[in-house]
């Protein structure tokens, strides 16, 4: 997993609430048995019409939102299905940071396992940031210091559990960490008679 520390980049704005994982990656693309190559299918039904042509009115198809590494969205981003194909497709498309007022619980967890940083800012901050970024302004996300800044003076602190932060900053594989607790897991099973 690629570590995340300080990211400066362009932000795309998707000013919609309750964006569900069925929209992020529709079910017809869940049959692959690989983890890679999902970016081309991201937001497929919103991005393309029935002939496979880009829909001009979809936010991410508009020039100001292209080539962005940060996505700013409305509340309850990633609700619905637990499909990890959602973070896989966002990352493969180019987003390693997602900023929203709130995230669905399962999606939020899935991000950390894939080198995506989900940042919760309050409604006002997200609104201000959307206005800042609408002017094609690059922003900087600093994970070690937990803040989001822009050249125009926007500066917001964000909270993150220290454990998830450590995983992302170091790009660690969580399973190798847990396997070090093998003796404790053995002891738990023995004590529980399982």
């Amino acid at each position: 997993m690629k570590p995340i520390t300080i990211v400066t980049g362009k932000a795309a704005i998707l000013d919609r609430v309750n964006v569900d994982t069925d929209q992020i990656i529709p079910k017809q693309f869940l049959k692959r048995i690989e983890r890679t190559g999902f970016g081309q299918f991201l937001f497929y039904n919103w991005r393309y019409d029935e002939h496979g042509t880009e829909r001009e009115d979809f936010e991410l198809n508009q020039p100001q939102n292209k080539n962005a590494s940060i996505l700013i969205a409305g509340e309850n981003f990633g609700c619905g299905s637990s499909r990890e194909h959602a973070p896989w497709s966002l990352l493969d498309y180019g987003f390693s940071i997602i900023i929203a007022p709130s995230f669905a619980d399962i999606f939020y967890q899935n991000c950390f396992k894939n080198g995506i940083l989900p940042i919760k800012l309050n409604h006002e901050e997200v609104e201000t940031l959307m206005a800042v970024c609408a002017g094609d302004q690059a922003i900087t996300v600093d994970l070690p210091n937990q803040h989001v800044k822009s050249g125009t003076g926007f500066n917001a602190h964000f909270d993150i559990h220290p454990y998830w932060k450590e995983l992302l900053v170091n790009g660690w594989d969580e399973i190798s960490i847990t396997l070090r607790y093998g003796p404790q897991i053995d002891a738990f099973e023995k004590a529980s008679g399982i």
Binding site: R83, I106, Q109, N110, K113, N114, I175, L179, Y181, I185
Partner: peptide, 30 residues
């Protein structure tokens, strides 16, 4: 699968997870 919450009807703590967590549970049962 997010509808794993169904099993909560039995008084189990049951919840949906992503594929990385599926791998984590397969490898560590935790």
């Amino acid at each position: 699968d997010s509808h794993t919450s169904t099993h909560g009807a039995f008084g189990a703590l049951a919840f949906g997870i992503g594929t990385s967590e599926v791998e984590h549970v397969l490898a560590t049962q935790t």
